[in-house]
Design a protein around this nucleic acid. Sequence first.
RNA 1: GGAUCCGUGGCUCAGCGGUAGAGCGUUCGAUUCACAUUCGAAAGGUCAGAGGUUCGAAUCCUCUCGGGUCCACCA
Length: 712
Amino acid sequence: MDKTYNHKLHEKDIYTFWEKGGYFPPSPKATEGQGKPFTIIMPPPNANDPLHIGHARFVAIEDTLIRYHRMKGEPTLWLPGADHAGIETQFVFEKRLKEQGKSRFDFDRDTLFKMIWDYVQENKGVMENQLRILGASCDWTRNKFTLDPEIQKIVYKTFKALSDDGLLYRGDRLVNYCTVCGTGYSELEVDRIERTDPLYYVRYKKIDSADYVVVATTRPEPIFADTHLAVNPKDKKNKDLIGTKVLNPLTKQEMEIIGDEFVDPEFGTGIVKLTPAHDFNDFQVAEKHNLPIIRAINPDGKISQAGGKYAGLYVKKARAAIVHDLQENGLIEKIDDKYQHVVGICYRCKTNIEPMTREQWFVKIRPLADKALQAVKKGEVKFAAERFEKIAIHWLKNLRDWNISRQIVWGMAIPAWQCKECNKWIITDSEAPMECSCGSRNLVQDPDTFDTWFSSGQWPFATLQTTEPGDFEYFYPTSVMNTGYDIVPFWVLRMIMLGLYTTGNVPFKNVLVHGLVRDAQGQKISKSKGNVINPIEMADKYGTDALRMGILWGALVESDIALSENNIRGQRNFGNKIWNIARFVLSTPLVSNLQSPTSNEDDERILKELNESIKKITDALDQYRLSEAAEELYEFVWKKFADVYLEKTKDRRGDAQPTLLFVLQESLKLAHPFMPFITEAIWKIANKQYSVNSPQGFFKEEALITARWPAS
RNA sequence: GGAUCCGUGGCUCAGCGGUAGAGCGUUCGAUUCACAUUCGAAAGGUCAGAGGUUCGAAUCCUCUCGGGUCCACCA
């Protein structure tokens, strides 16, 4: 054995040994299944991106749990996958096109899809190999991609079922629209930022007098499309205005002032303009009062035809022109240019979100959310940390209908065809329909694709229903869903809702939410800050084991962690400590006539301490307290075993050898879920040396990965 | 505005009702003996502040201050 452990000499070979040796698929197989299986569906990383440090964290967490349960002898399945990450990927791809002086509009739909498909297939392997580098013991024979045809079939079935159950509707609804990305976004994908913008006080002349009413607005540009103003009927100073008629300052059309309680009397003058086609509040009010909804801004970000002379201008230019015109006519009373408010911006490209009406598919969320809410409250889905249950419940109570269409190419096409004769929609879960019930064959498929979360929300059952026969029946509901708290509302809740809807059962019994990985100072990691930690680089430098221990060490799973290189280096040293314990212990041959246990008090003490540590580590793992388990392991191996016990055996080596071997063997088992490579490497050496010629049968299993977890 | 979390030694974090803990960092010392990716030792905290509950509080309650995160229709 070398003086120090060199991870580069072992990691690759060991992973190959595991993968080729078939240690990852569940054993026994589902169809022969006995006992309770342990299952984790891996949150599929973006197929297109290399892994970042956050992925390393979920690998460390999930692989540790998986290896622990596998060693306990449970049929253990960790199902890997890759996500097509619709908007995200198309965004990146379009950036590449741009570098080549092209854009998505240079290609037809099918060509573009094919191009992105090839691009993603090319990159997907990178991500998968990085999972291997990180030691992920997932079952590659069951690997899935979110756009696999068999997954798509399942998603289509769900879509059709939602339609048949009346939970799907197509409505001319207001959506958050990004004019740059060319797509509608769900509420969740809109970032809110605080910003200072001018607040314009615009005069509206009363029709029956020379007086004005003044309206404060940050959005003067759609004024031409406004037909009503509103005041709060409880607002003493303004309530008398209800019913008053004024003139639209741009079109000179007559406008009526209505009363609605949504108006905040404290904002501006207490009088607001209603722009139902581009504001969520106003839209609601318009629906309530049956007001016309006139589009002022087109999906391309330009002013609509209704804008008259402003039509075709981009919003910003139109605003300047309109403000200028209003000023010329003395219709702007003042401009408060220090007005702070919160605006929605696109979470991808940071462009202003324009709420606008667009035909979209919506899922009625209440029936789904109510069931999910019950399941959470009844504990059918448990959150390992209570506070995330609270957050989930809060969300489930407040969810709105879910817009599941996206106007992008890179995604799963929506299996809905519209008849051009009678405008009816035909939804199918199999072949494209040939003709409409009206007899027409002029059918056009919806050009939209599904929201990524609509398909990935079905991931747990869609994967298991399309792997090996019997998998779904055996492994579903899965044991644990582990994911970052940033996507609990996006993903976890949708999986619960769609899982319950489609299978009648929750998709997983436990939710283990993990925190973010931050830099050593606790700063959020971002490319712009330049504090990115590349997990693959760290694994290369210090070894995967050290990286994984470094990540698990020091903070609870659900908290954010501040990851420093020092920390990883410290764990590399710990690995080396294990290596040298083994070097010490394995350097002395076992005298075969010595029977263990001996009656030496040091031996007895270390065996007692070993038992205590086994118990603590096992308990901690069962409660997902991985940092506690890792710390107990560290403490036992380094302090109790190496520093104290091992030192004391130096003058009685022959006598202590059975105990040394036993404690080393058990320590390797305890350490394996956390540090799989180095422990397997040592095990191989020990197995060669001892499995045959020790009467106690030390290190007898061929591979540590499937050796039995120690019993306390 | 609502929700939620956090404030413990220089740094990053455990502990969550019974005499203050770890890792890193710092200081001092050791070292041909498995490991300098080492070993031994030390310094360093009135557990944000103020009240309260309790025989007893870092740990429970209230308030204040300071940070973070998520949500929200304030145009």
